[in-house]
C-alpha cells in the first residue's frame, strides 16, 4: 500500500493565512478517523512549524505523509536558518522581532512544543540558508 503524501506551501510573513496548512492536515487526519488526541498533537506541531516558517523562514513547504502506523510532518523553508539549534530548543529562548511579539508570537516555545508533542523531531538548519524540520508520530495499534 502506498502512503498518502501531500504538500502545502507556506508564504513568508503571511500572518493572515498562517495556520491554513495545519488546518488542512488536521481535516485530512479527521476524515481518517484517527485518534483525536494524536490529531491535536500533529496540528500543534504543524502550526508551530508553520509559524516559524512564516516568521523566520523564506517561503516554505509543509509536507504530510500518512501511513498506517506512522505520520510524518516535514516543514522546510529557505529563510534565516537557526544559528544555535541547542539554544533554540530551550524553553523561552526566542529570536522573534518586536513586530512578532506585538502580534503575540515569540514566546520561545516553538521548538520545545514540537519536541513535546511529536514522537521524533529532527532539526537541520544552516544560518542564512534555511531550516528543515522533520517530525514523526506513531499510531498505536491498540
Amino acid at each position: 500500500m502506498t502512503a498518502f503524501i501531500k504538500s502545502f506551501s507556506i508564504k513568508k510573513r503571511d500572518f493572515v493565512r498562517a495556520g491554513e496548512a495545519s488546518i488542512n492536515v488536521q481535516n485530512i487526519l479527521k476524515s481518517l478517523n484517527m485518534d483525536h488526541k494524536l490529531i491535536r498533537r500533529i496540528a500543534i506541531c504543524g502550526y508551530e512549524g508553520e509559524m516559524n516558517a512564516v516568521m523566520h523562514g523564506g517561503d516554505g513547504i509543509l509536507t504530510v505523509e500518512i501511513d498506517t502506523g506512522r505520520i510524518i510532518l516535514d516543514i522546510a523553508d529557505n529563510g534565516d536558518g537557526i544559528e544555535n539549534i541547542e539554544l533554540a530548543m530551550q524553553k523561552g529562548y526566542s529570536t522573534a522581532t518586536e513586530e512578532h511579539r506585538e502580534m503575540g508570537f515569540g514566546a520561545g516555545m516553538g521548538l520545545p512544543n514540537m519536541k513535546v508533542n511529536s514522537d521524533m523531531l529532527s532539526v537541520e538548519s544552516e544560518k542564512g540558508k534555511g531550516t528543515h524540520l522533520h517530525m514523526e508520530f506513531y499510531v498505536s495499534t491498540d
Partner: peptide, 14 residues
C-alpha cells in the same frame, strides 16, 4: 456518525 475513509481512499480522492 461520520463515515470514515482509508488511506487508499485518500489517494484515490487526490
Amino acid at each position: 456518525y461520520k463515515e470514515h475513509i482509508s488511506i487508499e481512499h485518500l489517494n484515490e480522492i487526490e
